[in-house]
Amino acid sequence: MTEYKLVVVGAGGVGKSALTIQLIQNHFVDEYDPTIEDSYRKQVVIDGETCLLDILDTAGQEEYSAMRDQYMRTGEGFLCVFAINNTKSFEDIHHYREQIKRVKDSEDVPMVLVGNKCDLPSRTVDTKQAQDLARSYGIPFIETSAKTRQGVDDAFYTLVREIRKHKEKMSKDGKKKKKKSKTKCVIM
């Protein structure tokens, strides 16, 4: 069974824990209790493949930012979460993405942009803004509501699919490099 290491990042209060708990335990946590770091595991079937999701729910508070490099190193894919009623959390996505790329030393890291709290009427981040940002990053965008469960499975499952595509691409690139290195030079 394939294991996928997913990391949920975003500013404090955007609903990272609520999304994760909704996926794992099928219930909505409405009281806000700032996370330092929590880890969850769940076995699911995605596109006919049974897999184990190892999900790291991270601290959004700035005082825990020193811990970010460590979990970013171990993560295979990242859910970059903002709240649709919090423009600052949307603007912060850029910083999370840049930090992930720096730590992973790669421009090509599996990510999904997630606009959470889409059940709320007080939207300050337009869907088109988020779609445009995701398009500019070359990553999928999904709106979710941890409260109603809308888009929750889709967000995590899409990230797994992005990781699969990335692994497939990397193995193809690896095979191309191996083929090239088999060419021999004969000096007579």
Rank of each mutant, 00 (worst) to 15 (best):
F28L: 11
G12Q: 03
L19G: 05
Q61A: 12
R41K: 10
L19F: 10
D57P: 03
E62K: 04
V7D: 00
Y40E: 13
L52E: 15
G60M: 06
V29R: 12
D47Q: 03
V29S: 12
L52C: 13
K42W: 02
V44F: 08
H27Y: 08
E37S: 07
Y64K: 15
E62T: 08
D38E: 10
I46E: 03
N26P: 09
V9W: 03
S17P: 00
Q25R: 08
G60I: 01
R41L: 06
I21H: 15
Q25V: 01
V44W: 02
V45E: 08
I55N: 07
I36N: 15
K5T: 01
V9L: 15
E62C: 11
E31F: 09
Y40M: 12
N26R: 05
I55C: 11
T35C: 06
Y4W: 05
Y32V: 12
F28Q: 03
E63R: 05
N26M: 04
G48C: 01
K5A: 01
I21N: 15
D38Y: 09
G48A: 03
G15E: 01
I46V: 12
L53E: 05
D30I: 10
D54H: 14
G60R: 07
I24L: 15
E3R: 12
D54Y: 03
I36P: 15
V8K: 00
E49K: 06
S17A: 02
G12L: 04
Q22R: 09
E3K: 13
S17H: 07
F28R: 09
G10S: 00
Y64G: 15
F28N: 07
L52P: 13
D54P: 04
V9K: 01
T2Q: 14
L23H: 15
Q43P: 09
D38T: 05
V14K: 01
E3L: 04
D38F: 05
I36Y: 05
V9Y: 02
Q25E: 07
E31D: 11
T2M: 03
A11C: 06
K16F: 00
E3T: 11
V9A: 03
Y4L: 06
T20N: 14
G12N: 02
Y64C: 13
E63T: 04
Q22Y: 02
T35E: 07
T58V: 12
A59E: 10
I24P: 15
Y32D: 15
G12I: 03
G60W: 03
Y32R: 12
D47C: 01
V29P: 07
T50I: 03
E62S: 11
E62R: 06
R41E: 07
K5M: 00
T35Q: 05
S17E: 07
G48I: 01
V7M: 06
L23D: 15
D38N: 10
F28K: 08
D57Y: 13
S39T: 08
Q22P: 15
I46Q: 01
Y40C: 14
V14W: 00
L52A: 13
T2W: 02
V29W: 08
T58R: 06
D33P: 10
Q43R: 10
D33L: 09
T20P: 15
L52Q: 15
I55V: 13
L19P: 00
L56Y: 14
Y4F: 12
D33C: 10
G60L: 02
L23K: 14
Y40G: 14
T2G: 13
I21P: 15
Y32L: 09
G15A: 00
Q43K: 14
V44T: 09
T35V: 06
Q25A: 06
C51F: 13
G10Y: 01
E49S: 05
T35P: 05
G48M: 01
T58P: 12
E49R: 07
S39F: 04
Q25S: 07
D33M: 10
I46C: 11
D33T: 09
G15Q: 00
V44P: 08
L56G: 14
T2H: 14
S39Y: 05
I24H: 13
Y64L: 07
L23P: 15
V8L: 07
G60K: 11
A59W: 05
F28M: 11
E63G: 11
T50V: 06
D54N: 09
Q22S: 13
V44S: 10
V29T: 10
P34K: 02
V44M: 06
Q61F: 05
L56P: 11
Q43A: 06
D47H: 04
Q25M: 02
E62L: 05
E37P: 05
A18P: 02
S17C: 02
G12D: 08
G13L: 08
D54A: 03
R41D: 10
G13S: 05
E49C: 03
L19N: 11
K16W: 01
E49Q: 09
L53W: 07
Y32H: 14
L6N: 00
T50Y: 03
V29A: 13
K42V: 05
L56T: 14
V45Y: 10
Y40I: 08
Y4G: 07
G48R: 05
A18H: 05
Y64N: 15
L52I: 14
F28I: 14
A18N: 05
E62P: 11
G13T: 07
E63N: 13
K5D: 04
Q61E: 13
Q43T: 09
G12V: 04
V45R: 08
L19H: 12
C51Q: 03
Q61G: 11
K16E: 02
G13D: 12
L6M: 06
S39C: 07
D38C: 10
A59R: 13
E31A: 09
T20Y: 05
L53T: 08
L52G: 14
E62I: 09
Q22K: 12
I24M: 14
K16S: 06
A11K: 01
G48L: 01
Y40W: 06
S17F: 02
T20H: 10
A18L: 04
E37D: 13
L53D: 01
I21M: 14
V7S: 02
T50D: 09
S39K: 09
T58E: 10
V44R: 05
E37G: 12
G15K: 00
G10W: 00
D30F: 08
K5R: 11
L53P: 02
A11F: 13
L23S: 15
T2A: 11
P34E: 14
G60S: 08
I36S: 14
Q43S: 09
G48N: 08
Q43G: 07
K5F: 01
L56K: 14
K5Y: 00
I24C: 13
G13K: 03
T58N: 10
G12W: 01
V9M: 07
L23R: 13
A59C: 09
T2S: 13
I21S: 15
V29Y: 05
E63F: 01
K5G: 02
V8T: 00
C51E: 08
V7C: 14
D30H: 03
T20E: 13
T20I: 04
E31G: 12
Q61C: 08
I36E: 14
